[in-house]
């Protein structure tokens, strides 16, 4: 697997690993059967992501994308976090091997799932703001 130096750097020194106590939003995507689970914890203050932590079970790319995605949204307004795309994550890592692109999708989806949970806890319907969350399970038949 030809990973960029940036991927390996984030993999070996992942930022924002762990959990948050009393998080304002938690999102979990992926599943163990496919070999990757990402869980994001958010704190929100004044419409900004004041803190973010993650836990990931998965390959090097899964850990690196989680790490850089948390870095990209920390301290940013919610609107910016919602706009974070998987391709922005890929670019920030100086690229990912083709078979690992789905890891960047997981990172984007994990953030959206956590924000969706945040709005739900606030008593706000998340769907008009966050959008409909995609099914992040792999479709084995179509990807093979």
């Amino acid at each position: 697997m030809l990973y960029s130096d940036k991927v390996l750097e984030h993999f070996s020194n992942p930022r924002n690993v762990g959990e948050l106590e009393n998080p304002d939003g938690v999102g979990e995507v992926g599943n163990a059967k496919c070999g990757d689970i990402m869980k994001m914890y958010l704190k929100v203050e004044d419409g900004k992501i004041s803190d973010v932590k993650f836990k990931t079970f998965g390959c090097g790319a899964a850990i690196a994308t989680s790490s850089i995605a948390t870095e990209m949204i920390k301290g940013k307004p919610i609107e910016d976090a919602l706009k974070l795309t998987n391709s922005a994550v890929v670019d920030a890592l100086d690229g990912l091997p083709a078979s690992k692109i789905h890891c960047s999708v997981l990172a984007e989806q994990a953030i959206k799932a956590a924000l969706s949970d945040y709005y739900t806890k606030q008593g706000v319907d998340p769907e008009p703001i966050v959008g409909k969350l995609e099914d992040t399970d792999h479709d084995h038949s179509s990807e093979e």
Binding site: M1, L8, F11, S12, C34, G35, D36, F57, G58, C59, G60, A61, A62, I63, K100
Partner: peptide
Amino acid sequence: GVEGESLLLMLDMHGICASSGSACT
């Protein structure tokens, strides 16, 4: 609780070459 490819990358950082049967590898 751990995924094979991550394990291999970390072992590699310590100079150990190994294999895994994980999907990612």
